[in-house]
Design a binder for these strands. Structure first.
Lengths: 245, 245
DNA sequence: ACGATGAGTTGACCGCCATCAACGAAAACG
DNA sequence: CGTTTTCGTTGATGGCGGTCAACTCATCGT
């Protein structure tokens, strides 16, 4: 998500009615007229309760979903039952991009808390993107950004140690909370240790131990799902030079 | 890449001049007229020698590249120098999608052998995609497919053991060679053990050992960079039930 | 052709994280 | 409100793959 929003963009966000559709509705260079047209895109809204699936693997792809409130995880499963969390999404982020490729979803999207999404019918989006250049450009950027995000996760999973993975994870969450106007220092984890571990390629015990370790080192405070970052700089430094103990 | 090409598509491929632009030039439902227009897209061609960079990290993004001949790796680097291979690309696949997001490339693309690419100026592609619905749809699918591919790599890195990772890697390569009309049973690795290891989150020694292990088990034959698959089924089975030894 | 250099193999040892297990605490349920 | 279940923490132990090292074998350049 873009952090530094020029003033003009803030206006656009307001113009885009009540919807926090940051990623799709905030392209630079859209006229007010275009913004109005984009509102046509938003079809129904959908509310989900905690643990409810927005869509399941193998279900047919019809729409993208912009998260209006709440948060989600996406998970992929192997035939033998092994499951992996491939991402955590929060307000303003898009879900469903995985389905464009084949017309079937390859991941499931599960609400981590009671949430609400805007349904964006994909056929309409494609049609409108053909007419509004700025929308097309922005949509491509969103797709590419997801590719880039996943590449950095590959890097994390391929080369980093447990401590580094957790540090990256916490700093990333903090940044995203801050970008949404929440505290980037104190926040509540929406997911369990097991889900964090699954995302980071670690076991839940390792996640728990590493968080405790961070606390002992004075880097963070942990109280169940509540996290407080106490020393961002050392946390950041840790990514390049793991703690020697 | 799509394997089952309906007859009409074979014609299109021929129509798309000499170019093997499978992913972009083979959308279903393009009229002959549209195909002709797509040819406008192809600007210059570029030849690269082994080890030469098609583009580097942080270089400005201007174009996508369709591989006409040869193969590439894409790599990402951390500040501390750690490097990871994020993908191997071969004939007919697209390079450069990572740059759309920010206008700067976040990976480097390096030729694994002497290679040739078609340069597709991105601005032109976007313009043409606005006019030709089939091209737009196909382009979105290519982007989404890359997202899906990376998700399966995340799964591999997050949950699989060394043996399983290698098995997945070999079977995937075999499938892609086969899809290009080459043997899916006997092929030559274009990359080193170190590059394979980097991609799979393993050290080169582990790659080497595991390949030797496969050979002892009669699953494959290895002679330096030449691989021969001897028992695909057991190789595939191994992914769900690692060898007990 | 021939050294020089990079690539690959194999062995010995070790460390990080998984595994197994027990306990404690919070939250969800009726 | 109390009970059950899920979630989280911590300890003990072990194994997979990393690390260090030595050696062999291609490949490439001059």
């Amino acid at each position: 998500m873009d952090l530094q929003l020029p003033p003009t963009l803030r206006q656009l966000r307001v113009a885009c009615s009540q919807c926090n559709l940051m990623e799709l509705c905030l392209p630079v260079g859209l006229s007010e007229e275009d913004v109005a047209r984009i509102e046509e895109l938003i079809g129904t809204r959908r509310k989900l309760k905690r643990h409810q699936a927005l869509y399941e693997v193998r279900s047919s792809f019809q729409a993208l979903y912009a998260i209006r409130a709440g948060s989600f995880k996406t998970t992929i499963v192997l035939e033998d039952g092994r499951e992996q969390v491939t991402g955590f999404q929060m307000t303003g982020e898009l879900l469903g991009l995985d389905g464009i490729s084949t017309g079937l979803h390859v991941v499931s999207a599960i609400a981590l808390e009671d949430s609400e999404v805007c349904v964006i019918e994909y056929a309409r989006l494609e049609a409108l993107a053909r007419e509004i250049q700025g929308l097309q450009a922005q949509f491509h950027k969103v797709l590419s950004r997801e590719i880039v995000r996943e590449q950095s996760v590959m890097m994390l999973l391929g080369t980093m140690r447990a401590e580094e993975r957790l540090a990256v994870f916490l700093l990333n969450l903090a940044q995203r909370f801050a970008a949404r106007g929440f505290s980037g220092t104190e926040f509540r984890l929406r997911m369990t240790r097991e889900e964090i571990g699954s995302y980071l390629g670690l076991k839940l015990e390792t996640v728990s131990r590493t968080l405790s370790h961070f606390q002992e080192e004075g880097l963070i405070e942990v109280q169940h799902k509540n996290i407080r970052l106490r020393d961002r700089e050392r946390l950041r430094a840790l990514i390049q030079a793991p703690l020697s103990h």
